[in-house]
Design a protein around this nucleic acid. Structure first.
Length: 503
RNA sequence: GGCGCUAUCGUCUAGGGGUUAGGACGUGAGAUUCUCAAUCUCAAAACCCGGGUUCGAUUCCCGGUAGCGCUACCA
């Protein structure tokens, strides 16, 4: 009987969650869920000031939006708490003291300036720039005296290991020579624990069994192994994930554009699309072919065996493709609801959004959804519904040419009066009118519909008229910040601007 | 400088000592439609370089190159 799997995600709250971190979180979550294990959220906030506590809130909110849930964390507790590093400082100093008692750690009084000087000299002499060990053999009495005298001191671990080896969950057997690292800092002179020390203490005490993290931590692993060894603790299994790169093959960062959970949310990317995409970045399902996987499939199929070792370039186009897929397949009611804030922001809707407006909006979404990659594109895709703008008719080559043609004027001069006279029309009536116009003018197909489309929408392209006409007619009766013009209102306006003569 | 990680279409990847090197995004062409899109069909597109091992290497080994990471009292 093996111990139950316990994994964790341990971000520091910085105000946004980078996709690289989001992917690490996702992989841990998938691994935990696949193995029916526990997923722990721990906040690494030792350096965060009080004023920045709100960051934790937004971090948790972003992870929730992303679709992850955790079994233990600062917001829900658990029997291994507290789950904030800032609340665990006594724990770190307790083990540091223990280590010093056993002579496995010592006070270091070197100043940062001194250390920097050592470093430069070592570099110049072509030596490895690691800690010299100056304070390593100070007597306990002298150390105590200097600390009592108020001298600033950090705590360093005494490295005794020959080398460090572990069987990496994704890279396989990995080995580092012991002489590449100097004695690492455990506790900084300001009393805060160093990262490589705090994670070890936390991971051990929280009984973490598998540490899945970015491969930038590979060379930190020996340091952490040294701490496990000194404390006589059994280390967890480590697995290191490759980096996510930007299109220029440098590490993906904010300067590459939308790279945080928050920014994808603002763009109107669906969390399930992002989950699917990120899961595929560095991992592939066993058949090597399936691209679209929901959470159930992701969890069922997830395995550390199929992790790619090489770094992956983040491809927004493929994310968009997945997002379009999920957008089209999600329940319309949900997408409609999600789209409301974007349309309010554009000034097309205002609170309160009544059930009638929502019902109508569903039709709008239905008409324009296939034209967009993500929800924030909705206002521009639906613009020709909310606004009837003829000002660009003349500078657009396509519409301009169209309007000049004899056949277009012929079609419209017959079509427009029919609609204006009828007032409100249904799509069936519209079809009747177009059939009549067809009979009267002999124009059909593109020649018939294109001018009508331009007259009705002010644009040469857009959703099917079959969908637009009821939307215009029903929209005209709604109370919206901006009145939606009905078909006949549009055509009256068109007549005025374009000067179509009615025969 | 030292140490480490990585290397298959433009991109994400599957595969693996003998394959027509598979899939997806994107791209191009065609079909369809009142238009754009969506959809469907088809197409172009890859094993970093050099040396071993081997009957045979894209696959295994070594080296090079390139990219990335670490080399902190950052996390």
């Amino acid at each position: 009987m093996t111990a139950p799997v316990r994994v964790r995600f341990a971000p520091s709250p910085t105000g946004y969650v980078h996709v690289g971190n989001a992917r690490t979180a996702l992989f841990n979550w998938l691994f935990a869920r696949h193995n029916n294990g526990a997923f722990v959220l721990r906040i690494e906030d030792t350096d965060i000031q009080r004023s920045e506590e709100r960051y934790e809130k937004s971090l948790i909110e972003a992870l929730r939006w992303f679709g992850l849930d955790w079994d233990e964390g600062p917001d829900k507790g658990g029997r291994f708490g507290p789950y904030r590093q800032s609340e665990r400082k006594e724990i770190y100093s307790r083990f540091a003291r223990e280590l010093m008692e056993y002579n496995k750690a010592y006070y270091c009084f070197c100043t940062p300036e001194q250390l920097e000087k050592d470093r430069q000299e070592a570099l110049k002499a072509g030596r490895q720039p690691r800690y010299s060990g100056r304070c390593r053999d100070l007597s306990p009495e002298e150390s105590a005296r200097r600390v009592n005298a108020g001298e600033a001191a950090a705590v360093r671990l005494k490295i005794t290991d020959e080398d460090f080896a572990w069987d990496d969950l994704v890279h396989g057997p990995t080995r580092f020579s012991g002489d590449v690292i100097g004695d690492p800092i455990l506790v900084r002179s300001d009393g805060n624990p160093a990262y490589n020390y705090a994670v070890v203490v936390d991971d051990h005490l929280m009984e973490i069994t598998h540490v899945i993290r970015g491969d930038d931590h590979i060379s930190n692993t020996p340091r952490q192994l040294a701490v496990y060894h000194a404390l006589d603790w059994e280390p967890p299994r480590f697995g290191h994930l490759s980096t996510i790169l930007g299109p220029d093959r440098s590490r993906l960062s904010k300067r590459h554009g939308a790279t945080s959970l928050e920014s994808f949310r603002e763009l109107g990317i669906l969390p399930e699309a992002l989950r699917n995409y990120l899961a595929l970045l560095g991992w592939s399902p066993a058949d090597g072919k399936t691209e679209i996987l929901d959470d159930r499939e992701l969890i069922a199929q997830f395995s550390l065996d199929h992790i790619t070792l090489s770094p992956a370039v983040f491809d927004p186009e493929k994310l968009n493709w997945l997002n379009r897929h999920y957008l089209k397949n999600a329940p319309r009611a949900r997408i409609t609801e999600l789209s409301v804030p974007f349309l309010i922001q554009a000034g097309y809707l205002a609170e309160p959004v009544t059930p009638q407006v929502l019902a109508w909006l569903k039709k709008v979404i239905d008409a324009v959804l296939k034209n967009i990659d993500y929800l924030s594109q909705l206002p521009s895709a639906a613009r020709l519904i909310f606004e009837y703008d003829l000002s660009h008719l003349k500078d657009n080559e396509e519409t301009c040419d169209e309007m000049k043609s004899e056949s277009a004027r012929e079609v419209l001069s017959r079509f427009i009066p029919k609609v204006i006279q009828a007032g409100r029309i249904t799509y069936e009536q519209f079809r009747e009118f177009t059939r009549e116009v067809q009979k009267e003018t002999g124009r059909k197909g593109r020649e018939l519909f294109h001018p009508i489309r331009i007259a009705l929408t002010g644009a040469a392209s857009g959703p099917e008229l079959e969908k637009l006409i009821p939307i215009f007619e029903e929209g005209a009766e709604l109370r919206l910040p901006r009145h939606i013009l009905s078909c006949s209102e549009r055509l009256q306006e068109f007549q005025r601007v374009a000067g179509i003569q009615i025969t």
